[in-house]
Design a protein around this nucleic acid. Structure first.
Lengths: 219, 219
DNA sequence: AAAAAAATGTTGCCCAGGCAACAAAAGGTG
DNA sequence: CACCTTTTGTTGCCTGGGCAACATTTTTTT
C-alpha cells in the first residue's frame, strides 16, 4: 500500500496531501489497481469511464486515431502520469486509446464518490475535489494559451509571444522545458524554420540563447 | 428573484435543475447581483476571483491585452452568458478583462461553498458540482479539438477534418454554427483562402454546400 | 576515446495561402 | 423597391515557411 503513496503524492491531484490524509481518502474512494501486459489496452477510445488513472509502474502510450485512420502517438505516460482526469467528470467518450508499452500497473480512482459524496466522506475529500477542479482549469488555460500562440500570423510572432510569456513568469533569463524539436511542435512549425528564425532574432540582437536557455535583450 | 431564474436555468451550469432546486441552491450559495454601467469593468485581467459570473441583462465584452499592448476583443456576453466558470476553481489570475458594453447586471456565485461544502449544504449542490466539472471538461475537449485542427498542415486537411467531425456528430448533411468569416477564424485561416478551397472541393465533387449547409459526398 | 546515435543548425527550392482589391449576393431598413 | 450594410465569392500577386538534404554539434554507448 505505502509503496505507491509517493507516486500519488507527486501528482497534481494530490498536492497538499499528507501521506496519512491520502490513506484516509483512499480508504473512502476504494481505488482499484489493474495490471496491464505490454500491448494491452488500459483505456479504449470511445469508452466513457468515470475513473481517473494513475500510472504506478511501467510505461503507457496515449494514441489517437487520425482521420486518415492510422494511430498517431501523443504522449507517454510514466509513473506519476495521470489520465482520464479531465474526462472522468464529463459524461463524454474518450478521444484517446491508452496502451501499455511495457508491463504496467495503474491505480483507478472512481470519481462518482468525489462528485457525489456519501455520508462518511472524510474531510480530505474536499481537498481532492479542489485539486480536481484546479487541475482541469489549469490544463484548460495552458491549452488556451497554446492555441492563442498557434493562431498568431507568423513565426516571429509565435516565438516572441512564447518567449515573452516565459519571461513574464521567470524573468528575462530562463530555460524552456523543450528541446528545439519539442518547441517547434508546441509552436506548430517546422523545426528548421524555428532554428532559422531564432538565428535571425539572435543576429538582430533581440535575444541571446544557447539550447534551452534564453535571454531576452530587447522586447 | 424569479425573473432571472429562467436565465440561470438556460445555462450549462444549471442543466438538470428545477426552478425549486435552483432556489434552494441559491439560498445556500448566497449570490450577489451587481450592476455595471456601460463601460465599467466587471472583471479585471489579473484578478483571481473565486466567483462565477452569470449575465442576467445587458451586454458585456471579454477582452484581452495582446503582446502589442492593444485590447483585442474576444467574445460577447449576452444574458445567459457565463464567465469565470473555469477560472474560479483554479487559484489563477484572469487572463481577460470583462467590460460592460451596455448597462448590465451580473449574478456572481461564490465557488468556495461548492468546493468546500458546509454543513447544511442542500442536496442540489451535488448536481451543481457535477455540472461545474462537466462544463470545464467539455470546454477543455472542445478547445483540444480546435487546437488539433489548427495544427493540421494545410487548409484542405483542416476543412476536411472539421467537416468530418461535424458529420460524425450530425450525419452527412449538416449546418455549421459559423458564417464563412467565423469558420475561417475557427480554422485559423484567411476567409478568402477558405472560400477558395471550399470552391475547389466542390468542383472536385467532394462536398456540396450552400452557405452554412454542407453535404459530404465523398470522404 | 572512438564510434554510433540523437539533437540542432544551415541552406536552396518552391508553393500554399496571406493579403489586397473588387464583384456579387444576401439582408436589413425606411 | 431603392438604398445601404453585411456577408460571401473570386482572382492576381508575392512571400513566409514547409520540405528535403546535408553539416555540425551534443549525447550516449561500448
Amino acid at each position: 500500500m505505502d509503496n505507491y503513496n509517493t507516486v500519488l503524492l507527486s501528482t497534481p491531484l494530490f498536492t497538499g496531501f499528507t501521506p496519512a490524509g491520502l490513506n484516509t481518502l483512499l480508504q473512502y474512494l476504494k481505488p482499484q489497481i489493474r495490471l496491464y501486459q505490454k500491448g494491452s489496452v488500459a483505456l479504449l477510445a470511445g469508452d466513457d469511464t468515470a475513473q481517473i488513472g494513475f500510472v504506478l509502474t511501467g510505461k503507457l502510450n496515449a494514441e489517437k486515431a487520425t482521420a486518415a485512420g492510422d494511430m498517431q502517438q501523443f504522449s507517454k505516460l510514466l509513473p506519476g502520469g495521470v489520465f482520464g482526469d479531465v474526462l472522468a467528470g464529463t459524461r463524454q467518450k474518450s478521444p484517446v486509446t491508452i496502451t501499455a508499452q511495457e508491463n504496467s500497473s495503474v491505480l483507478f480512482l472512481p470519481v462518482a464518490p468525489v462528485l457525489n459524496p456519501q455520508k462518511g466522506a472524510p474531510p480530505e475529500l474536499t481537498q481532492f475535489l479542489q485539486n480536481m477542479v484546479a487541475n482541469t482549469g489549469k490544463k484548460y488555460f495552458a491549452l488556451a494559451q497554446r492555441a492563442e500562440i498557434m493562431a498568431l500570423p507568423n513565426l516571429r510572432a509565435k516565438i516572441a509571444e512564447y518567449l515573452l510569456l516565459q519571461a513574464a513568469e521567470n524573468g528575462r533569463t530562463f530555460t524552456v522545458p523543450f528541446g528545439r524539436a519539442g518547441l517547434a511542435q508546441y509552436l506548430n512549425c517546422e523545426r528548421s524554420a524555428l532554428s532559422r528564425e531564432i538565428a535571425k532574432m539572435r543576429k538582430e540582437g533581440l535575444i541571446d540563447c544557447y539550447k534551452g536557455s534564453f535571454k531576452l535583450l530587447n522586447l
